[in-house]
Structures are given as structure tokens and as C-alpha cells.
Computed example of a mutant assay.
Amino acid sequence: MEVNCAGCAGCCLDWRPLVADSDRDAESTGIDHERRGPRAPLDDTYNLVALTRDEIRAFLEAGLGDVLTPRLWEADPDRDDDSLEIDGHRIAAVAGRPAFFIGLRKPPKPVAPFDREEPAWLPTCVFLDPSTLQCRIHGDDLYPEECADYPAHNLELAQETECERVEDAMGGTRLLDDDPGDGEGLSELLFGPQAIGQKLFTHPEPDELAGLVDRVAHNEPTPADRAEFVATAAASSPGTFATSDYHYEQARARVLEADSWAGRAIDEWRRRADEKPDTGLASAVEDARGAPPTPGWDALEGRRENDGGERND
């Protein structure tokens, strides 16, 4: 597999508004893919990365609990699936428990993907540097498996990749080699019961989610809302519905106490979202708060020439 990520970051930000402003049709390009199928997300966040329980715990231990957010799903009205109604929303459930996963928050940032001259405010992964369009934790121990293995898992499953959606909507070549290889080094694909407690979580007390579900649906969860879901996920046991009270209380406290550079940057980005977009704001908003630097594409190209490595950033 070989991909051309320079100047793209299509899998790290919501570029649908750019297509909506053009003459292209969003439906034909497939960029509404998350709103299709039997269980659409309750929220409208694009390409939310699903974290494993161990990854969630690692972010909490690193003091980054303020970058985590939950996702729930709408139940399919045409299927006799397990579901619950909370806050007027019919949501998907497992064994009578609301199902959810935990991902990384996407605040508005001024970005100029796909070689655009003018930046635009777009929902962007908390760890993406708006100036270089590179991930600030790429190669770090916290870098999620789902990001590291993308788009190889999609290729293994013969599913369309974000690279191909970008090519179709914006032109250019992003997926240079669509051979995922033999799968060596890729994380395990979690499907069905084996995902419970490891990547797909369930909340044991649906009655406690009144109010929370509606705020999640409107992309407005409070810190306490996020803490409730994150703590439940961190306290889960893989393959079961059991949760640990100790890990729940510890995780909830860590989310509410978190005051990371990334969390503070999210708040600042949201305050500035009415300003004229300028990628140079990254220095004042993220770098000044201690964000890890990114190398830039020239440095990576030089490293690649010396190592003869693949173009997979």
C-alpha cells in the first residue's frame, strides 16, 4: 500500500462543506457514507476515529481526557434491532444497553487541504496541525491503531477509502498502490461480540443518560457528558458487559481534571471560529500551548529519499 498524504488530510477533517460549495454532488462522491446503512451516527462528525479501551486509558494517563468524545447510533426503524428511546431519539443498543464508542474531538480549524489557496473553517482532528496538515502524534505511542492502519483495513475489506473519495471529488492521485499486503503488522479487526468492551461499549444505566443523548446528537456534549461515556468505556472488560467501579471513578475524575494543551486549544478554536480563517493561527492557538511540532513535508520527502520508504504519512 502506498498513499500520497501531502496537503490532503482528507481522513482527518470534514471536507464535505468544500464539496457543498462546488458544483459536485456530495451523494455521488460518497462523502455521506457515514449517514448510510442501518445504523447512522447520532452526531454529524465525519470520520470519527474509534479508540480501543487500552487507547482510551492511555490518553487518560497522558492527561488528555479532554480530547475524547462519544458516538451513539440511530436505530434502524426498518429492522427489529435492539434499541432504546432516550431524549426522543431511538438509539441502537446491545442487550438493552445503549451502544457507543469513543473517538477524538474535531474542533473547527482554519485549514487549506487539497492545495486550496484560501483556508476555510472545517471540523478537524484535535491533533492535526492546520499549517502542515500533519498529525502531531504520528508515530507517538498515543497514535491510534485505526489511524496507523488506514486505509489498509479498508482495502482488506474491499471498502472505499477516503483517498478514493478525495480523488473523485477533488481530483489528483492519493491512493498510489491499493495492495494492502499480507496484513502483517496491522492491528486486529474487531467485529461482532469480540468488539464489546474493547472498541464497542455499552452503558449499564440508560436512565442516567437523559439529557446527555440529545446533547451528543447536537455535537454539544458537556465535559460531564463526555466524562460519563469515557469513564464507562475505560472501565469496561473486553468481551463482556462488566465494568469496574474503581476504573470508572478513576477515569471520570481524569476526564474532568484534564487541562491539556489540546483541550485548551479546542476551546480557543471554538472562540475564534467567527474570525477570518488563517492557517497561521496554529502558532498562537496550538504551538503556544505546548503542541508537539510536525516536521513538514520537505523533511519527510528527504527522509523518504534516504530510507527508500513508502509514501504513507
Results as ranks from 00 to 15, higher is better:
Pro180Ala: 04
Pro180Asn: 02
Pro180Arg: 00
Pro180Cys: 00
Pro180Trp: 06
Gly181Tyr: 00
Gly181Leu: 03
Gly183His: 03
Gly183Tyr: 00
Gly183Asn: 09
Gly183Pro: 07
Gly183Trp: 02
Gly183Leu: 10
Glu184Gln: 05
Glu184Asp: 12
Glu184Pro: 02
Glu184His: 11
Glu184Ile: 03
Glu184Phe: 04
Gly185Tyr: 03
Gly185Lys: 09
Leu186Val: 00
Leu186Met: 09
Leu186Arg: 07
Leu186Tyr: 12
Leu186Phe: 04
Leu186Ile: 05
Leu186Pro: 02
Ser187Leu: 09
Ser187Met: 15
Ser187Val: 01
Ser187His: 14
Ser187Pro: 05
Ser187Glu: 10
Glu188His: 08
Glu188Asn: 04
Glu188Cys: 02
Leu189Ala: 11
Leu189Phe: 13
Leu189Gln: 14
Leu190Met: 14
Leu190Val: 14
Leu190Glu: 11
Leu190Thr: 10
Leu190Gly: 04
Leu190Gln: 14
Phe191Trp: 00
Phe191Ser: 02
Phe191Ala: 11
Phe191Asn: 00
Phe191Pro: 00
Phe191Leu: 07
Phe191Ile: 12
Phe191Met: 12
Phe191Tyr: 03
Gly192Asn: 09
Gly192Cys: 07
Gly192Pro: 00
Pro193Lys: 03
Pro193Arg: 12
Gln194His: 04
Gln194Asn: 06
Gln194Tyr: 02
Gln194Trp: 01
Ala195Leu: 03
Ala195Trp: 00
Ala195Asp: 12
Ile196Leu: 15
Ile196Asp: 03
Ile196Ala: 03
Ile196Phe: 03
Gly197Leu: 10
Gly197Tyr: 06
Gly197Gln: 10
Gly197Trp: 05
Gln198Met: 01
Gln198Thr: 00
Gln198Glu: 09
Gln198Gly: 00
Gln198Tyr: 06
Lys199Ser: 14
Lys199Gln: 13
Lys199Gly: 15
Leu200Phe: 12
Leu200Tyr: 09
Leu200Val: 07
Thr202Val: 13
Thr202Ile: 03
Thr202Trp: 03
Thr202Gly: 14
His203Arg: 11
His203Leu: 07
His203Gln: 03
Pro204Ser: 12
Pro204Leu: 11
Pro204His: 02
Pro204Arg: 10
Glu205Ser: 11
Glu205Val: 07
Glu205Cys: 12
Glu205Asn: 06
Pro206Arg: 11
Pro206Lys: 06
Pro206Asp: 13
Asp207Ala: 08
Glu208Gln: 15
Glu208Ser: 15
Glu208Arg: 15
Leu209Asn: 05
Leu209Tyr: 03
Leu209Cys: 05
Leu209Gly: 09
Leu209Arg: 11
Leu209Ala: 05
Ala210Asp: 15
Ala210Leu: 06
Ala210Ile: 08
Ala210Asn: 12
Ala210Arg: 11
Ala210Gly: 10
Ala210Phe: 02
Gly211Thr: 06
Gly211Cys: 10
Gly211Trp: 06
Gly211Gln: 06
Gly211Ala: 07
Gly211Glu: 15
Leu212Ala: 11
Leu212Arg: 12
